[in-house]
């Protein structure tokens, strides 16, 4: 396989995943902006959405004042925002187009149709009542992409590079979501002393990572608790957006790759190392290290893995 093909498959998946993550962040902001909460700054949810998407500084520089419409437009439609949903969908599609021969027609049609339909949407026509459906549509299209990838793609190196892209992006997103408001997850900060008090930010975090329902199943007898939520999203590999889940996939994929290429490249070893450290750790240890430090460190390691992968397999 060409190095360029590997690169395109990797980035196609990353951008498709990023489009979905951004839409989930907005879904959450949209919802919590409707629920009155005491002691909240004006447009705090929208500022938080920008921060979670890693776009706050760029927004301030390019747009300025934070407003619901402004943030929505910047994160969904703005061509100058390199992580807007529009740019993600276009970039995913251009990468797919560059390797049209390396993906199945089902996968191509999923990506291409998303691109075509998105391009037809007039941002002006997207009135507030239509936003939830539109954001849900973006998620659905991403699920169609994943479904096509899983159900139609030959399990060869192309498939492996696509998987790496998805889970590197997803792990980074989860770590970012957690880190943006890590302090609300610190058990020691929970000084209110009332076990029944559930912070609204906890629901937001779970919702952004599509984990609100599954949390209740994973912790049947527990209320929302900072400790549990952090554990759920970091260490529980049965949670599809948890860091451990992402690295479970990445490690499996790395093993398949090692077998497929009959090689032991550095990146494949790194994947195993990151996964096994997540397996061994407990939440107690993570809180001892410091949640913020742990998450920052994790993002760096995740990034190093991606860089090493592209180095090992000759793609930029």
């Amino acid at each position: 396989m060409l190095g360029r093909t590997a690169s395109s498959l990797f980035w196609m998946s990353r951008y498709q995943e990023r489009a979905q993550n951004t839409s989930k962040i907005l879904e959450t902001a949209y919802r919590s902006a409707m629920v009155p909460q005491s002691g909240q700054t004006e447009n705090g949810e929208w500022l938080n959405a920008l921060e979670t998407a890693g776009a706050a500084a760029a927004y301030e520089f390019n747009i300025g004042e934070v407003s619901p419409k402004g943030v929505m437009n910047y994160l969904i439609f703005d061509r100058n925002n390199p992580s807007s949903v529009r740019v993600c969908i276009e970039t995913a599609r251009n990468n797919a187009r560059a390797v049209r021969t390396a993906i199945t027609s089902e996968l191509w049609e999923a990506i291409n149709t998303t691109h075509l339909e998105f391009a037809d949407v007039n941002p002006q026509s997207l009135t507030p009542d239509k936003i939830p459906d539109f954001l849900a549509w973006i998620s659905q299209r991403s699920h169609l992409f994943r479904g096509s990838l899983l159900n139609t793609t030959l399990r060869d190196d192309g498939y492996f590079f696509s998987q790496f892209g998805t889970f590197v992006e997803r792990a980074d997103n989860t770590a970012r979501v957690l880190n943006t408001r890590y302090w609300v997850l610190l058990p020691d900060n929970d000084v209110i002393g009332d076990d029944d008090f559930e912070r609204p930010q906890w629901s937001d975090i779970l919702r952004t990572l599509s984990g609100k329902r599954s949390y209740r199943f994973a912790y049947p007898n527990a209320k929302l608790k900072a400790y549990n939520i952090a554990e759920f999203l970091i260490l529980r590999k049965e949670m599809p957006r948890a860091l451990a889940h992402c690295y479970d996939w990445i490690d499996d994929t790395a093993k398949d790759m090692a077998q497929f290429y009959d090689t032991t490249e550095v990146s494949l070893g790194l994947a195993e190392e990151i996964y096994s450290s997540l397996q061994k750790m407990t939440m107690r240890e993570i809180f001892d290290i410091g949640l913020n430090d742990f998450l920052t460190e994790f993002r760096t390691r995740n990034n190093n893995f991606a860089n090493q992968l592209s180095h090992d397999f000759n793609f930029a």
Binding site: L2, G3, T5, N314
Partner: peptide, 22 residues
């Protein structure tokens, strides 16, 4: 067959090669 762009190919010892993941 592979679809390549110019930068995917290089010449060494008078032969043409493609840059692959292997």
């Amino acid at each position: 067959v592979q679809l390549v762009e110019g930068p995917d190919l290089f010449v060494e010892n008078g032969r043409v090669f493609m840059r692959t993941t292997r």
